[in-house]
Design a binder for these strands. Structure first.
Lengths: 199, 199, 199, 199
DNA sequence: TATGAATGAGACTTCATTCAT
DNA sequence: TATGAATGAAGTCTCATTCAT
C-alpha cells in the first residue's frame, strides 16, 4: 500500500539476502524455505514467484557469489605489476572481500560441493577458470624471468588451494590476522620458499 | 562351523563399506538408508542393529577415515629426515593413501562440513591437530637452520591447504599425475619458492 | 468471502473430530495418523500444521474431554440442594453428558492410562480433584447432619468409582437404562444402603 | 547342561514372569519382546517357542490373572455367611490378593481394554460373570430378608465398580490403608448407606 | 530346545511445493 | 503481486517375528 517499499525487485532482493543468511547459518539441507521466507519478511509462496525451487534459489546465490568474487579481483590493476605484487593483491583483495561478505563466503565455499551434480560441475568449472587465470599469470612471470621455470599447473593449483583455506579461517573467525599482512606473508612464502640459502 | 564369509562382524563391515560407497556417490543428505542397506545386501533394519542412526553411521565412517589418514603418515619415519624430505613424504603418503581409498576420501573431505555441529567441531579439531603437527616440524626446521625464519603458523596452514586440494583432484580424477612426482614438485615449490634469483 | 464452511479453524476442528472418531474406534496405539487425516478429509501433513505430534493431538482431546466433563457438572446448581439431590444430579448429568459424547467418552476413559507418563500423572491429578470435590460435599453433609459420621475419603472414592463404571456401560451400549432413573437408584443405594431395618 | 534348571516349563514360567514384570511397568504397547526376553534371561527367539505372538503371551497372562482373581474368592466360604460378611470377605480378599500380586494386577486392570477386540470381549464377559455372581448373592440376600428390595443389577454393578477402583489405588500406592479395615468401611457403607436416620 | 542376527512392513514425521484467494 | 493453508511424496527408524545354527 505504501510507496516506500515499492522499489523494483526489493522483495526479490530481500529473499536473496535472507537466503544467504539462512544458508550460511544452516547449510543448504538444513535451511528451510519457511525460515528464509520469514527472514525476508515474506510469505512462503512469494519465494516461488521469483525462484523456481530451493535449488534454483541456491544456484542464483552461488552464481552471484562467484561473480562477486571474480569481480573482486580487478584484473586491469594486475597488468602492470610484478608477479609477487599480483599474487599479493589477489590474495589480499580476496581476503578483504570475504571478510566483507562473510555469510556469502560461507555459503559459497562450504556448500559448494554438496548439492547436485549440475551445480558441482559448474563449481568445478569456475575453479578451473581460476586455475587457468593463475596459470596464465605464472607463465607470464616465467617468460618475464621473474619466476623460475616450474610446472605452472601445479603452481597455480597450490595458490588456488591456499587462498580459500585462509579465507575460510578468517570468515569462520578461526584466524583474526590482518588480511594485508597475511597476504604479504603468504606471497613471500610462495615467492621465496621456506628454505634457507638456496642460490 | 563353516568357513563361509559369515565371519563375526562381516555384516557390519559390509554396511560400512556400502555406506562409504553411497555417501561418496550421493553425499550425506542424498544418501538413503535403504540404498545403503541394499548395497550391503542387507535389510533396512539391519543397519540399525549396528548403528544408532544415519548420523552415527556417518560419524563412524568419518572417524575411521580420519584415523586412517592420520595413521597413513608414519611419524616415526619422519624423525631422521630433513624438512624437505619430511614434507615430501607426508604429501606423497597422503596422496597415495587417498588414491587407495578414493571413496572414503570423497566422503571425508566433501561432506565434512555439512552435517551437524558436533561433527563440525570435531573435524575442525582434527584439522587444527594437523596444523599443529606441521607447525612443530617447521619450527624444528627453523631451529635446525634448514628453514629461514618465518611465521610457522601461516606456513603450516599453507601446507595444510595444499595437501587436501591436490588429494581431492586426484581422487576426483581431475588430475592423474603420479603422486610421487607431484609430491616432489610441490615440496620443491614450498622449499625453494617460485621466484628466481633470491639469495 | 463466501459463507462456505471454510471458517477459520474448520480444518482443525475436522481433525479433532476425526481423531476422536478414530481413537475411540481403534485406541491410541492402533489409530494411524493417515486414517485420522483421511477421516478429516485432510492430507497427512495437515495434521502437523495444527498439532505437533500424535501424542499432542491425543493430549488435546483428553484435556478438552476432561474439561467438558468438569463443566458438565454445574457446581452453582449444587449449592442449595441436599446431599442426596447433589449426588443424584452429579451422576445424572455425568451420564447424560457421556451419552451425548459417546466417542469422546471412550477415548477419555479407555485410553487414559495407557499412554505416557506425563499424561498419566495429569489424569490422576484430575481424578484426585474429583475425589476432593466429592469429599468436600460429603463433609458438608456430615456437618449438616444429613449424613452420618463416616470416613469421607473412602466414601468419596466409592462414588468416584461408581460414576465412570456406569458411564462406560451406557456408552458401550452394555446397559440402556434411563440415565435419570439410574442416577436415582444409585443415589438411593448410596444414601440408604442396601441393608434392611437399620435404625 | 546342568540338571538344576531342567524343571519342566521353567523357561516358560520365567518368560511369563518377565512378561508380567515388563507389561506392568510399560503397558502392552510399550513393552518390548526383547526386554521381556532379557528379563527372563532368555533369547528373543525362545519366547516364540512357547507363545505364538506378543498378543498371545499377553492373553495368557490375562487369563491366568483372571483365574487367579477368581480363585482368590473362595465361594465355599461364602455360603454360610450373611451378605454383609460375604461382601466384606470378597472385598478384603480381593484387596489382599491384589497387594500380593501388584504387578499382575496392574497388567490385568490397566491394559485390559486397550488391546484387540477379541480380548476386549473376553474381558467384558469376565466382568459380566462377576456381576452375575454378585447379583446372585444380592438376590439371595433379598430373599433372606437381609437386604431391602432393590434393583439387584444396579447394586451388583455398584459393587463391581468399587472393588477394582480401590484395588488399583492400593496397588499403585496411592492409598496405603489396611485392606481389612478398608473392606469393613466399604461394606458398612454399602449396607448402611451414608445417610442418617432412615428407619 | 535355545538362540539372536537378520528382516521388512509399516509407523510417524518433514518440508518443498502448489494454488485458491 | 503476495500469501499461507494444504498437501503428499519420501525419508528415517522401530520392533515383532523368522530361521539357520
Amino acid at each position: 500500500m505504501d510507496i516506500t517499499e515499492s522499489n523494483r525487485g526489493s522483495k526479490r532482493d530481500a529473499i536473496l539476502k535472507a537466503a544467504v543468511e539462512v544458508f550460511s547459518e544452516k547449510g543448504y539441507y538444513n535451511a528451510r524455505m519457511e525460515e528464509i521466507a520469514a527472514t525476508a519478511g515474506a510469505g512462503k509462496g512469494t519465494i516461488y514467484e521469483y525462484f523456481d525451487s530451493k535449488l534454483k534459489l541456491f544456484q542464483e546465490i552461488m552464481e552471484t557469489g562467484w561473480n562477486f568474487f571474480s569481480r573482486s579481483t580487478h584484473l586491469e590493476d594486475l597488468m602492470q605489476k610484478s608477479f609477487q605484487e599480483q599474487i599479493e593483491l589477489i590474495i589480499a583483495e580476496h581476503m578483504r572481500f570475504c571478510l566483507e561478505h562473510k555469510k556469502l563466503t560461507r555459503v559459497v565455499f562450504i556448500d559448494a560441493n554438496v548439492i547436485d551434480e549440475e551445480l558441482k560441475e559448474w563449481v568445478w568449472s569456475i575453479r578451473l577458470e581460476k586455475e587457468q587465470l593463475l596459470k596464465g599469470l605464472i607463465e607470464q612471470g616465467i617468460e618475464n624471468g621473474e619466476l623460475r621455470v616450474l610446472d605452472s599447473g601445479v603452481a597455480s593449483k597450490m595458490i588456488c588451494a591456499i587462498i580459500p583455506y585462509f579465507a575460510m579461517q578468517l570468515v569462520l573467525d578461526e584466524d583474526n590476522s590482518n588480511p594485508d599482512e597475511l597476504a604479504r606473508e603468504i606471497s613471500r612464502n610462495i615467492m621465496t620458499g621456506m628454505g634457507k640459502n638456496h642460490l
